[in-house]
């Protein structure tokens, strides 16, 4: 465990807490893409299959449980909770995210470390995570104005991935056979998707203005 990875995990945890806080405090999920949240549930379930079979550390297991349960809780709130579900922008959140699922799964069948169930699921979860933010970014562009919490949510999601890329660079130079080309490529693609968001986020922060994404 190195500082970059710990910072990345903590930042990732913050994104989940921001969403839970927003939903709990405002009883509203406007501006949040249910599709992105559903993709994240798939990402965590597919990646943490080894939760009970491959113990790595208490920290690792605890964080896996936290990510899986919180992502499911967010989807539950947005789908079932009587107050919250009414505030979901159903007609705005129209990204056909099943194409992302199919594409990631096809890619995982082609490119994986070993052609085993667990490795294909792991690669699937890595590819899917790289594109999971797309429905959310599309929703933000559609709804134009971005409320603070949602803007911070996307910002921290991007920051978590930047920390992970630094972690992979660090591990590449400190560990011999550290070759995670799947994570590298997917992680770079994922971070690139945030690039324009970061740009507009920085501009709005600099001008101290409301975050406006070009439609």
């Amino acid at each position: 465990m190195n500082a970059f990875r710990l910072a990345g995990d903590m930042t990732h945890l913050i994104t989940v807490l921001i969403l839970l806080l927003k939903i709990y405090a405002t009883k509203s999920c406007s501006g949040i893409s249910l599709k992105t949240q559903e993709l994240y549930v798939m990402v965590f379930v597919a990646r943490y299959l080894d939760l009970f079979t491959n113990f790595i550390s208490v920290y690792n297991s605890v964080m896996k449980v936290v990510f899986v349960t919180s992502s499911i809780a967010i989807v539950w709130c947005m789908r079932i909770h009587p107050l919250v579900r009414r505030t979901y922008d159903k007609e705005q959140d129209t990204f056909r995210h099943y194409f992302l699922v199919a594409g990631s799964f096809g890619l995982a069948l082609l490119f994986n470390e070993n052609f085993t169930f667990r490795e294909v699921c792991w690669a699937f979860s890595i590819y899917l995570e790289a594109v999971a933010i797309l429905p959310q970014l599309v929703l933000l562009q559609r709804s134009g104005n971005v409320d603070n919490l949602t803007g911070q949510y996307v910002f921290f999601l991007g920051a978590y991935r930047v920390f992970y890329i630094l972690n992979w660079i660090y591990r590449y130079f400190t560990e011999k056979h550290f070759s995670r080309w799947i994570s590298w490529i997917a992680g770079l693609v994922q971070t690139a998707l945030y690039a324009d968001f970061f740009y507009y986020y920085f501009i709005s922060w600099k001008n101290n203005s409301k975050l406006q994404l070009p439609a």
Partner: peptide, 10 residues
């Protein structure tokens, strides 16, 4: 940590 393809990252 662990064998090569054990994914020790979250």
């Amino acid at each position: 940590v662990g064998e090569k393809n054990s994914h020790d990252e979250l």
